[in-house]
Design a protein around this nucleic acid. Structure first.
Lengths: 167, 167
DNA sequence: TTGAACTTTCAAAATATTTTGAAACATTTA
DNA sequence: TAAATGTTTCAAAATATTTTGAAAGTTCAA
């Protein structure tokens, strides 16, 4: 396979993976492009490579920076802004895990806690509901804690975790 | 909070969480409804509770069964079909983890492997590309293995994992 | 073997999400 | 301070996804 073909395939695949996990496809593609670029890219570069508009590029770069996985850089003498992606994959995964927990899991947990506190109904339905939502709260909060524990390990947290699990 | 309000809030929240993770909202809502129902529900029941069409209900129940987290049941004497959700949360999470790995992660890994095997280009861009995609392949396959290791533990795999991590 | 009861399918319609592009905004240079 | 260079915003347009509902399909009882 030739480089250009492989590159395009990578960008498509990363975009599709993002999509399947609820991430805007273009955002994932920009991230893919920045990851494989040895040099920071300008907005123009990105627009041209991916054939997308300026507005789209600007908004998705903003999102990527909000996630903390893309950074803005300035080149001396140059007026325009350049962008580069987090280069450390461990750190990338850590950031994604933390953001998803903060934005999606934690708020869900708060709701689960609220609703399992329904006031004393005694129907089968209500007590089953309470039991289920409590169980769910318990499970989700422990899973969330587990992920936190895993990712808070510095460097090579995957290898470290696998080692610990093997014992 | 009253039961009916809590129930509706749960269905909304579960649907929104699904959405954020790339799962059809209605599919997640049907799953939510079945999880909190002490008895299996018929298609009619589901249509009525969620105000959705028969076709929508049928298709999403099929998807949930394909995921292996909802089951079809028959009541003696009754002609119509009833549906119930996987009741064991550990098992539910295990099924979801495995399906997502099979459908989304494994195919991505295959692509990463293919594209990192670009034939001998010597440009900086190409060698950086090769290095990055190899690194990514390595990371993703190890993360996938880790999840497999974690979920293959029988019963309370979260607690077991947390214990092992604390050492 | 017909028809009643129920489920699935899928093209069209509805809805939600994403993208565009031009105006507004910001910053620097002449 | 006016113009040049670049970025952001957001309403409208384009696109993608989901939903509907009616027709076709299936199963079973009479």
């Amino acid at each position: 396979m030739k480089f250009e073909e492989a590159k395009s395939k990578f960008i498509q695949t990363w975009g599709a993976l993002g999509s399947q996990w609820g991430i805007n496809k273009t955002m994932a593609q920009i991230h893919a492009l920045l990851m494989i670029s040895p040099e920071p890219l300008s907005m123009e570069d990105i627009m041209e490579e991916l054939h997308i508009s300026r507005g789209n590029t600007s908004m998705n770069l903003r999102s990527l920076m909000d996630w903390g996985i893309v950074f803005k850089e300035y080149k001396p003498g140059e007026r325009k802004e350049f962008f580069s992606a987090e280069g450390n994959i461990d750190e990338l995964a850590r950031k994604i895990a933390r953001e998803r927990s903060r934005r999606e899991i934690k708020p869900t947990l708060r709701v689960l806690q609220d609703i399992s506190a329904i006031d004393g109904e005694e129907s089968t339905k209500a007590s089953h509901f309470k039991a289920k939502t409590e169980e769910l709260y318990d499970f989700v909060s422990r899973a969330d804690n587990m992920l936190e524990k895993i990712t808070e390990q510095k460097e090579n947290w995957i290898t470290k975790t696998i080692l610990k699990l093997m014992r």
